[in-house]
Amino acid sequence: MSPTTLENDVQYVCDLANSKRIAGKRTIIGVAGPPASGKSTLAEAVVRCLNQEENAVPVAALLPMDGYHLDNRLLESRGLLARKGAPETFDAHGFCDAVQKLSSATRESFHPKFDRQMDLAIANSIAIHPDTPVVVVEGNYLLLKAEPWATLKDVFSATVFVSPTIEELRDRLQQRWIKHGLDPTAAMQRATGNDLPNAELVLNESREADVLLNQNYTEFGVRYAY
């Protein structure tokens, strides 16, 4: 697979979303991939692109899975804080139910958003208008074959899987923790102890997507890691 640029991939996914639109029906695009694959960067850029023209109602909305992280205190009480980011550390059923309801929304819906700096989810931070025709859903586990994630299979109008190499992911994950203040050794331990097992789960246990991207972006001298 040849490297691609962010701009090219964004336009490709926007064209895909527009091709799936049906009058009177909401189009839901799933963007999945392992942690640090670049899926969040792609999903955010796709929504910006679709909303380039000002409208009374946004053409597209973004729903990230990260808002459904369980609270740190709850994770700590269950001995799961060190595994934060693994499937069992999310309100998976709540998230899947919310995505399924998007298909037939008749009123405005509100969803949580994860704040990375505060390391917690903030309730009702995302509002999705009932007349917004496109919703881009983004997260690690959207395509997992296991329940309850498998219930999303028929919800998506199209799916995109972002998949750099495991070596690239290892480097990005280490750099992510270094930016959070860890030294290189501690950052690699954090990455290999939790993030990489989660990445391998996503790579090995996800069903095939409609579009596969490697997202090895180096445009403008920047590697996109989120």
Rank of each mutant, 00 (worst) to 15 (best):
M1S: 02
S2C: 00
V10L: 00
Y12Q: 06
Y12W: 00
V13W: 02
I22G: 00
A23Y: 02
K25E: 13
K25H: 08
I28M: 01
V31I: 15
A32T: 03
T41K: 04
T41G: 06
E44T: 09
V46K: 07
V59E: 13
V59T: 15
A60V: 05
A61E: 01
L62S: 04
D66S: 06
H69V: 05
N72Q: 03
R73N: 14
S77R: 07
S77K: 08
L81Y: 02
R83H: 12
E88D: 14
A92C: 03
C96F: 07
S103D: 01
A105G: 00
T106R: 14
T106V: 12
R107L: 03
R107S: 14
S109P: 03
P112W: 13
D115E: 07
D115T: 04
D115P: 07
M118G: 04
S125D: 10
S125N: 13
P130W: 13
P133H: 14
V135M: 07
V137Q: 11
V137S: 09
N140W: 13
Y141E: 03
L142A: 07
K145P: 08
W149S: 03
W149D: 03
F156S: 09
A158W: 13
V162S: 05
P164C: 05
T165I: 05
T165R: 08
I166Y: 01
E167M: 12
R170H: 13
Q174I: 09
Q175E: 11
I178G: 00
K179G: 10
D183W: 09
D183M: 10
A187I: 00
E200N: 08
L201R: 12
L203D: 01
R207L: 10
L213I: 09
Q215A: 14
N216P: 00
T218P: 01
E219P: 06
E219S: 15
F220R: 13
A225Y: 02
